[in-house]
């Protein structure tokens, strides 16, 4: 019994400490180093922040260069697919056109609905424009999927005036918020990430709630008032209650699934290539 315990100890010690002729570091040393780095990074300090910011900028840039062949291949594949399927697409479109022509009787109804929607969009646009003073356009540098984190890296950072907490728009729709700022780059947290919480208002009602990411495609509404009444397809806007996000930014349309109110986002996170960061007077400590 004692001998087998000794053997176990020897094997563990050997696995942790042996380096062999070609290895420079033992596993034990590197595990200790990782723990040290983790705790240094977890507790805010100026030196660590600056080191991380420098490392981030350097690695994001290298990563962007290393990824360019993959992006080029994807671009070529998409273009080739478009080219191959043009004839087929044309046929489908012609069929669809025929179908639409048949549906002339619905036109009147659609026109009225369109007018109403336009009114809603115009009013939200006015609110948005009155709130947005300045914005910075940025390119999506990296879009690495992860089962645990939904985030993107932008090619603009503190040099362009970006600060932590600022809202990010895809065209006129909310896409996420800035969670990490380096000198030349920044990271945005998408609305469907588990860590994303945004105060919202539903349609023109006075119904306030929190849009909470669930890790999957559609975020859900939380903290709705008791006995709430919501219509399917109502539009969700930012409420601006946090004092950081401007109010009236369209986010998506609601739908019901498994007794939960979910939101189908206007902004498709898989298709993002350029975004606008709104330069508000945000304070990171509010998050």
């Amino acid at each position: 019994m004692s001998a087998s315990r000794d053997d176990f100890g020897i094997v563990i010690r050997s696995a942790l400490l042996q380096r062999g002729a070609k290895q420079k570091f033992s596993l034990f040393f590197l595990i200790c180093l990782s723990i040290l780095i983790f705790f240094l990074d977890s507790f805010p300090s100026k030196i660590m922040d600056k080191t991380r910011s420098l490392l981030n900028d350097g690695i994001y840039l290298t990563s962007s260069i290393a990824t360019s062949p993959i992006k080029f291949v994807t671009f070529l594949k998409d273009k080739t697919q478009d080219h191959i399927f043009t004839y087929q697409e044309n046929k489908i479109l012609k069929e669809e056109l025929k179908e639409f022509k048949k549906k002339n009787f619905q036109n009147e109804f659609l026109l009225t609905e369109n007018k109403n929607l336009k009114k809603a969009v115009d009013s939200s646009q006015e609110v948005l424009e009155s709130n947005i003073i300045n914005n910075v356009s940025a390119k999506v540098l990296l879009d690495k999927e992860s089962p645990f984190l939904k985030s993107l890296i932008l090619n603009k950072g503190s040099r362009s005036g970006i600060r932590k907490g600022m809202p990010v728009l895809d065209q006129n729709y909310l896409a996420g918020r800035v969670v990490e700022v380096n000198y030349l780059s920044s990271r945005i947290l998408l609305l469907n990430d588990l860590n994303s919480k945004i105060p919202i208002i539903v349609g023109n009602s006075a119904l306030h709630a929190i849009l909470s990411g669930s890790g999957d495609e559609y975020p859900k509404l939380e903290y709705l008032p008791e006995g709430f009444e919501l219509e399917d397809n109502s539009t969700v806007y930012t409420s601006g209650k946090d004092g950081i996000f401007p109010n009236g930014i369209p986010i998506g349309k609601i739908f019901f699934e498994n007794n939960e109110v979910k939101v189908k986002l206007f902004s498709d996170s898989n298709q993002l290539s350029f975004v606008h960061v709104i330069l508000t007077n945000s304070e990171s400590n509010k998050f």
Binding site: L27, L30, I31, L33, S34, I35, L36, I37, F38, F39, L40, D41, S42, R52, L55, N56, I59, Y60, S63, L142, K144, S146, L149, S151, I153, V179, E180, R187
Partner: peptide, 16 residues
């Protein structure tokens, strides 16, 4: 750094 995780998390899991 690429995934936005606290530094040291992946090295530890890889080393384990």
């Amino acid at each position: 750094i690429i995934m936005g995780l606290p530094m040291g998390t992946s090295p530890l899991t890889y080393l384990v």
